[in-house]
Nucleic acid binder design. Structure first.
Lengths: 199, 199, 199, 199
DNA sequence: TTCTAACCGAGACGGTACGTCCTGTCTTAGC
DNA sequence: GCTAAGACAGGACGTACCGTCTCGGTTAGAA
């Protein structure tokens, strides 16, 4: 066997077709949803050959994940986690931002697709987690640790669990659509969680 | 009305084929996973005609949901939520039971399928929520209300939020596979939550 | 094996449904053609159960053949072959009658169906031949024999061949739709054939 | 125009699969007959995808017709109609050749299929007539015309009718299987017909 | 007159094939 | 050597009918 898995020369890759494909994928995602999204339709809409897609992405979900990444990069919302010294206020800001994302179709749609895809493709799940979830978790834990050092949290509080106490409820409500997600709700969670871990 | 959608006569439905189909669906789910599950394979394994499936279920996910339901009914785990008067102990029992389910492939697999499917089929999601999630939420809320009346919870605690504070974190950890789910973890959550809502 | 092929009791047969089925078959033949004709559609149109058809007829072609028979019986055109003594005139009458039938959709359609069906079902072909073709051939041969005895045909003429010289050409033109079939054409054939066999 | 019917690029057609499909069709025709012949079985036997068949042929009968054509081309029997000057002898040769074909399963089968198919699909009938029947008719007419010029036929003989007087009887006997088709019979027809049209 | 066996309409059933759609690979021409 | 285009083998889709079966309801002799 002579080099069965030929790997293409990335330096000669057409940037034009890459963007056309990812844009087409995003558009079709919005129009027909992930389940009815086909490689063929993406290629047709992008004016690209199917082979060009298969050459650069292994699966449909990889294309979609890349499309989401492109979409997210476009946004200029890489807000750093605030640290004003007032933990309560900082958490409120962040939890309200998450609530806003839950209500923004621009995030809601892609996020649901990624959750769904991750359930039957663990590798994809790991990648997506790495790219989208862990940064937020890490930043939150950082801020909590800073608050802990400042004596605003019990010294023995398990920060991994505290992060989950913050993200878990809002995530649960969003994922199962059990109730609307408001700023008031975001504040409520912060209240309960801080009540639990205050020294 | 042109009477387009002829509806079959449910009274003449073959119980034998219904069970064969749902059993085949469960088995194939376990063997190849939801994504590679085909109606054709279910019919073949069940010794049924495809039409018999299409006659009684609108989509693949409906078959699978029904299969899960049959599977769940078979189990004799319809444990009533305990109410010993000791809220702390009762919650621990329940949260540990949930932790056990997260680690039991018999529940883990189907549950992930349902979560995934629900994300791109809201109607399916609503049905699944109704059948599997709400009963647990309602029972938990009931127990919390009872505890609240007994003065073990703050009178102004929002029980919907408290339920989410309990279920959200464990659910989050399970869904994103961020860490193992142990009895100790279950206990931890109960501790934090009760600390937050104790009078 | 105990009487595997249960034969139904013909005396209890419902005349009403028999006629409804054959009528429906005739109508559907005219509407959609033999190839697209289905037992299911016949049953639905006739307001009969499928089993009632399968009980009394072995195949679709048997139903259709019966329908044609019913149709033919309805007609009162069982014209006896004329024998005026003038063979030329008598043959013209008969050949013109055949030409008329070729141009009459009432005969053309069914006849084509029977020809077609007979090609891939020899038994059906034998039955159809017996019922529809042989009577005409026999009557014609009879008339030719009478003419032969009267000295209007060569004594050594092979009547089977003469019949085919009469029927073959018109049949050929009809079957292959190579040219219109007129009375003039019918006369022409009689002219040529009589020229060939005149003493 | 919405460009509904995308037409494939014939220049890129796979010759290999075309032949495999037509060969498979021929074989299956011989094995199970036209009625039980399925596109699916042809594709399976040919190792081709069903779409490849549907891409290049509109119907089952079109595939079969093409298969016959390929079969006929393979044969090296494109005998030119003889013209020795002796019309009687030449016609005998041709009529005997036709008789032989009637008795040769290689021709009998396909021809019956085409006759049958032509009866409920006039377009197919037209194509088949063009490809298989008209060449023979034309050649025969040509030879007759040559004989007519040589004074062996009456000057006023209608050659279209004379051709039908030759082909019709043998065709009739073959189609309805009313009697065996022998060389003697072929000769007999030539005798009668020439008797009718001799000057 | 009641019983009972068969027919009847209806339609669910296990199947087969349909014609369409999409997958992932391969081939061709163009730049 | 990447690209657009699209033919190819393969396989699942959801539909239409096949011929068999089972279900009540009706009908017509036999008891």
């Amino acid at each position: 066997m002579t080099e069965a898995t030929r790997k293409p020369d990335a330096s000669r890759r057409s940037q034009r077709s890459r963007e056309a494909i990812l844009t087409a994928a995003m558009e079709l995602m919005a129009e027909v949803g992930y389940a009815k999204l086909t490689i063929e339709a993406i290629a047709a809409r992008a004016g690209a050959g199917k082979q060009t897609i298969y050459r650069w992405w292994p699966t449909k979900s990889a294309v979609v994940l890349d499309a989401f990444r492109l979409n997210a990069e476009t946004q200029e919302d890489e807000v750093d986690f605030p640290d004003t010294g007032d933990l309560d206020a900082d958490l409120r800001i962040v939890m309200r931002a998450i609530a806003d994302e839950c209500n923004n179709p621009r995030y809601d749609g892609p996020a649901r697709v990624m959750i769904a895809e991750a359930q039957h493709d663990p590798e994809f799940g790991a990648e997506a987690r790495e790219a989208f979830l862990l940064p937020a978790i890490t930043a939150t834990k950082e801020r909590l640790r800073s608050g802990q050092r400042a004596g605003q949290l019990r010294a023995d509080a398990d920060l991994d669990v505290v992060v989950e106490l913050l993200f878990g409820p809002i995530h649960h409500r969003w994922l199962h659509s059990t109730a609307p997600i408001t700023h008031a709700y975001a504040d409520q969670i912060v209240d309960y969680v801080l009540a639990a871990v205050r020294p």
